[in-house]
Structures are given as structure tokens and as C-alpha cells.
Design a binder for these strands. Structure first.
Lengths: 143, 143
DNA sequence: CCTTGACTTTGAGCACGCTCGAAGTTGTAC
DNA sequence: GTACAACTTCGAGCGTGCTCAAAGTCAAGG
């Protein structure tokens, strides 16, 4: 049974999701009902793939399903919803920027803390005094 | 009733969590049993605050509770666990780096897509032809 | 013919991380 | 003395986002 298009498994692999997730996304309206082969099996198009990649990318950056549903809904409604859709994207971009900021801070903090651990391990190896508290309790402001 | 130290509410505010969450963290072993005032109310120390800030920071960057529990456990076990603790931090730092990468990619993609929306809105306003597909279906590689 | 395997639907279940409700105790203010 | 607010414990409940189980259909291969 061919009927042109990707099977659900193919698409799952291509998009880094499971077949379960693809059906779920369809169920909750993130993707319009997918076309079917004669035997009733789903057949995904290239356009579906692009859209699913987009969804995957938004999810991977913590956009809530709710927001994605709203976006999908507006998309179905056509051109007149362009402004609202853009706003959703802009909001999410802002959310991403904020996440990046938090992550970068944490990254720097961990780098400090890890350096501290290394120092301590060094000292421990040569039998020096321990200063674990500096690592554990001061959020790595310690030198 | 004083008995020196922060109340659970104070600490919740200082750490950007709720009192509920503080009790929960204690329950699941993320923080050692907190000292009590004579009336049985919790009193948090400065050391508790630093540790809670650290926990908050790790959670905010998506470290699973499980990993935090492991780290806390090792910390209780003392100096000999230094290497394993460092490994946990290094793993999490790597996870953070990977998250940042994804977020930056998504950010760039959204910037493209948003620019596209603006273009389309411009054209629509002056009565030009619509090209929404470029925005919706090509993950913003479209010009 | 019969097995195998990929699909289908529906609804239930799960992991995570809180979040809340109920019932009780204290300490302070009026 | 009595109202009120802030805490206590315990266990249950919840929102999110999947994830899976059951029962069935279909097509191809041996």
C-alpha cells in the first residue's frame, strides 16, 4: 500500500518524535487531520513535515501546547490572523531570550563551582585542608 | 517567637519559591531537616538560604529532582564524594550548554519568521499578494 | 491458510513537580 | 477570652505532556 507520502513511523523519525506523539498532536488539533492511504493509514506530506518540525522546535524550547494550539488555530483561520500569530511568536522569542539568560548564568555558576571542586580535589590529594563549605554553601561565589 | 533564623515565608520569598515547595523539598530530602523554633516552626539559616538558592538555580535550568536528590545525598556523605558530585555538575553544565544551543537556534528561526510576518503584513496593507505559505510551512528559511 | 507486523481507535495510565485541603497548635492583638 | 494569622503534618489531587494497552484491521510472505 503506497498512496504517496510518509508513514507515521517515517515521519516520527524525521521529526524526532514518536508515532504516539504524532497521533496525539493530531488529536489535540496541533496538526490538521492527516490524509490517508486506502487502508486507512496516515500519509504525511512535505508540508506536514515542515509544520511538525516547527512544532517540535517550539516544544523543544518550552512553548506550552496551549500556545501552539492557539497558533495552529489562527493559522487555519487564514491571513487575517497574521498580527496575532506574530505576537505569539514574539512572545515566545522573548521567553526564549529569558531562558537563555538564566541558563547562561547557571552555566557560569557551575563553571565556578566545578573549578572549585577541582581545587579541593587537588588539595585533598596532597593532604591539604578541606574547604567544602565554600563549594556547597556559597553558590560558587567562592574563589 | 524569635529563635533566630528566617521563617518559612521569609525564606520562600528570598528564594523565589513557595512555603509549600520548601516543605516539599525537605520531605524529599533536598534539604536536611530544618531547625525549629520552640513552637515547632521552621527557622532557616543563612546556609540553608545559600543551598536553597543553589537548588532553585538548578531547577530553573531543568535539573531533575532526582539528580538534585543524588547531589544532596552525596553532599551529606562528605568529602569522599567530591568526584561524583563534580561529575553531576559537569553533566548538568553540558545539559545546559545543549539547551542554550537549541534555544539560540529557535531564537534565530523565530527572528526570521517574525521578519517574514512583517513583510507580509506590509504587502497586505498595500494590497499586494499573500505568501503566507512561506511563513507557515518552511520553518522560516523563506526570504 | 496463517503468521507477522505495521497500522488503526479509544480511553486509561503515568512521571514529574508541585499544590492544596483538612485539621490542629501557637502566639499576638484587641 | 477570643479572634486572627501563621505555622504544623499528612495525604490527596492536579496540570502538563505524553505513553501505553487493548482490540481490531489489513497486506504481504511463506
Amino acid at each position: 500500500m503506497r498512496d504517496s507520502g510518509y508513514t507515521i513511523q517515517d515521519m516520527a523519525e524525521r521529526c524526532g518524535m514518536t508515532a504516539h506523539t504524532l497521533r496525539y498532536y493530531e488529536r489535540v488539533g496541533l496538526i490538521q487531520p492527516v490524509s490517508r492511504a486506502r487502508n486507512g493509514h496516515r500519509r504525511y506530506s512535505e508540508a506536514d513535515e515542515a509544520w511538525l518540525h516547527f512544532l517540535h522546535c517550539m516544544r523543544a524550547t518550552n512553548m506550552p501546547i496551549r500556545a501552539m494550539q492557539r497558533y495552529a488555530e489562527l493559522r487555519e483561520l487564514g491571513d487575517s490572523t497574521s498580527l496575532e500569530r506574530r505576537k505569539i511568536l514574539e512572545d515566545h522569542r522573548a521567553a526564549i531570550a529569558s531562558q537563555i539568560k538564566d541558563l547562561e548564568q547557571a552555566h557560569a555558576m557551575l563553571t565556578h563551582k566545578i573549578a572549585n571542586y577541582k581545587k579541593i580535589e587537588q588539595r585533598t590529594r596532597i593532604g591539604g585542608p578541606l574547604a567544602e563549605e565554600a563549594v556547597n554553601c556559597r553558590l560558587a561565589t567562592a574563589g
